[in-house]
């Protein structure tokens, strides 16, 4: 091996030495400071520059703010591409997320100043409110990302999703044989519990964690823990099944809470881009 000096050692050492920080704290809040600066500068500009006849998106300062806002929105929406396109190079998705969060928040200021506080029933205002919708859903996302992961991890107890389902299947098999000696009515309760889809409950159940029609709980309530030996055994297994289901449902709930906002954030972003296009085209057309 002839030696080459150009290996990755220094870069790798920097990575291994690097502090371990979240996207919010990335590089000592670099993007927070940049976003704050942007807000302050645009705010001061708005206050100090004499816009004639009044502050408006159509003044030169308004166009400046609009251009900054437009570029920001387009760039922010590219996060979705960045996340999926694993190209080479010194980028980090964490840095992108950090910038996305803080610059996105700064858009509230930049966008609002761009409107000159002129609100009406038109495509311009539509774009503005779509932007606010995207940002508000994003704020929820940041809060969810900052608070939910540790509960997700505690609930998981080192089990993977597949293992949780496997554990349930194993319990079901035991339940099936344990329920054989039970009477008709009780057997039906157990069968109903076993036959119910693990993912029953729909979106609402998943988000709220309420499953009023849960057949396992129903069977649990009706099979006494102090009956015959078979009943006791089935009851104990049902308790385990309810626990296992509980873990799966909590997992689903936290995952859903972590993801639900994207169902607003992403479509609203696409609508916003469309509205922006209409906004820009119409502004220039009627110039």
């Amino acid at each position: 091996m002839a030696s080459v000096a150009g290996n990755r050692f220094k870069q790798d050492e920097r990575r291994r030495n690097a502090d371990h920080v979240s996207f919010l704290k990335h590089r000592r809040f670099r993007w927070l400071w940049i976003a704050l600066m942007l807000c302050i500068v645009t705010g001061l500009g708005y206050a100090m520059i004499d816009q004639e006849p009044r502050p408006n998106g159509g003044s030169w300062y308004g166009y400046t703010l609009g251009t900054i806002g437009l570029l920001l929105i387009v760039w922010l929406s590219l996060l979705g591409v960045r996340k999926r396109k694993i190209t080479t190079g010194q980028w980090s998705l964490k840095a992108w997320t950090s910038a996305h969060v803080y610059l996105g928040l700064a858009l509230i200021v930049v966008g609002t100043l761009h409107t000159g506080f002129q609100i009406g029933w038109n495509v311009h205002t539509l774009a503005y409110f779509l932007m606010l919708l995207v940002i508000i859903s994003g704020i929820y996302g940041v809060i969810a990302y900052a608070t939910l992961p540790s509960t997700l991890s505690s609930n998981r107890k080192e089990m993977t999703r597949a293992e949780m389902l496997d554990a349930l299947t194993a319990l079901d098999r035991q339940l099936e044989s344990a329920a054989q000696p039970l009477g008709r009515e009780q057997t039906d309760l157990v069968i109903a519990a076993l036959e119910q889809d693990v993912f029953y409950g729909g979106a609402w159940g998943r988000l709220t964690g309420t499953y009023p029609g849960c057949k396992t709980n129903r069977a649990l309530a009706r099979i006494s823990e102090s009956g015959s030996e078979a009943e006791e055994r089935v009851h104990a297994l049902l308790v385990k099944r309810a626990d296992q289901l509980g873990q799966i449902r909590r997992h689903l709930r936290i995952r859903a809470l972590l993801e639900v906002w994207l169902f607003i954030h992403i479509p609203a972003t696409i609508a916003l881009l469309a509205a922006l296009l209409a906004h820009v085209v119409s502004v220039f057309y009627y110039w």
């Binding site: 371990h20 996207f23 694993i86 080479t88 980028w91 980090s92 992961p149």
Partner: peptide, 30 residues
């Protein structure tokens, strides 16, 4: 051979994924 280093770390959106060496990481501060 991939410029930029480990993709798992680069692609983590929140900074949860880190790659460490034990002599650097097994310290009180870290």
């Amino acid at each position: 051979g991939i410029d930029g280093g480990p993709a798992c770390v680069r692609a983590c959106p929140t900074g949860a994924a880190i790659r460490v060496a034990p002599d650097k990481f097994l310290t009180f501060a870290k």
